[in-house]
Amino acid sequence: MKFGVVIFPGSNCDRDCYHVIKEVMKKPVEYIWHKENSVAAFDALILPGGFSYGDYLRTGAIARFSPLMSAVMDFAQAGGLVIGICNGFQILLEAGLLPGAMLRNSSLKFICQPVFLKTQRNDTPFTNKFKSGQVLKIPVAHGEGNYYCDPRTLQKMKDKGQILFSYCSAEGEDTMEYNPNGSLANIAGIMNEKGNVLGMMPHPERCSEEILGGRDGFNIFASMINWLEGVGE
């Protein structure tokens, strides 16, 4: 099993993701520069956070056309596990691998703080190590995490169970009051219909070890590993 961490110009969470897979999860991992054009050597891909191409035009809009992205899209369409974190989520949206788009935070502020997330499902490649409804504390750090899609798409995602994480209180109450950025339906993370591509704004790689003040992110990577080893679901 090998993980790949994609590096775009302006990615800045690539090393954190690499560190977590290698040192915390103890699994093989390699960086993949965005100019490469194959992901054949990998079983799971991480699109890390950061500011690819300086967020020029729209977040993720230019990275989405990096040479590697066509291989990432083929990989995802063939059922390969892909997780996009923060800017990685924005890139997945621009690439059309996930539905919707990101708008500026409703507060217009860059927010950098821990938030609570409700795990909506625990039968997926990304959440099989959690309890259903489990509340996680994971940090966000973004200026554009205000998720938007049209009402029909939102309904379809609800019907298909594509909303994996929603912003909530410490007790798991996912009302507007606990929404940090104006995101539609408190959406913090969504999957594609097939369930092999996850995009999330919070950063699990920043809280996978006790030394960082919490390890609620650990089980997202552990779930992926579980799934790849054929243990999950």
């Binding site: 035009l57 729209r58 809009a61 230019i62 056309f65 949206l93 621009e94 539905p99 919707g100 788009a101 708008l103 938007y148 899609c149 049209d150």
Partner: peptide
């Protein structure tokens, strides 16, 4: 393709 995002 690039200049506008048709979703928004």
């Amino acid at each position: 393709k690039l200049l506008a995002n048709p979703v928004i």
